[in-house]
Amino acid sequence: MEKTVNQKAWFLVLPVLVLVAFSAVIPLMTVVNYSVQDTFGNNEFYWAGLEWFSEMLDSERMWNALSRQLVFSAIILAIEVPLGIFVALNMPKKGFWASLCLVLMALPLLVPWNVVGTIWQIFGRVDIGLLGYTLDKIGIPYNYTQDFFAAWATVIIMDVWHWTSLVALLAYAGLQSIPDAYYQAAKIDQASRLAVFRFIELPKMQGVLMIAILLRFMDSFMIYTEPFVVTGGGPGNSTTFLSIDLVKMALGQFDLGPAAAFSIMYFLVILLISWVFYTVMTNLEKREGA
């Protein structure tokens, strides 16, 4: 019997398509339109061609923000992914403690971003914050409003505090899905703990880790609220990441054209890196499966 081909189910995705068009595609098209024009308000636009793109490509400010952003994303990925896996490996597998751990791990994820920023802004203050006060008393110089290193450390530790649990929860879900038979086989072969991790747990976690890395990369690359609340991009420009710089340009200076050109380049970089991550990971998965 021949299977009937019915493609009508595609109509069921229409609402999502409309929603994405309104929330993403149309705004993005508008940004492209803005990027080739100049405006002085009143919805009046003047053709500028590729001028803003040239200006942005020559702008030291943009390159600096981009390099700060790349360094930031690389550092937090290098910390959060191994740390998340380590936490997941050490979490209880079942029972009361497993549930408690899950709830505790999920807590930081529920805190709104600006609240996380405020918590750390106060926590790090030398006069009233527990962290700042303690460090100051034991003689470690720490002032995130004036010192470049302290500002970076605060922003990175804050991100690790906020998001490592996401990686841990995803890795934990991956670990839970490994059937016992694998561990039994490893035991029969007298595999070391490291070998179990390398040849059973890590390959089995690959799918969820791919999602974790992608999510953490994209989120950290777009980070705005937390560093904005804690350091406001300072001291100087040392924690001015791409989106902070972009908002300064678009809303602070109302330079819509350059800001639009900047956002398009920002979007392209995210798209490229995410695509590379995704392709590498899915191809590794296929090769492992083959």
Binding site: M29, V32, N33, V36, F45
Partner: peptide
């Protein structure tokens, strides 16, 4: 559509 600030080149690009 005026708020989207369309231009002929960008319209051609998206088309």
């Amino acid at each position: 559509m005026a708020w989207m600030a369309w231009t002929v080149p960008t319209a051609i690009f998206f088309c």
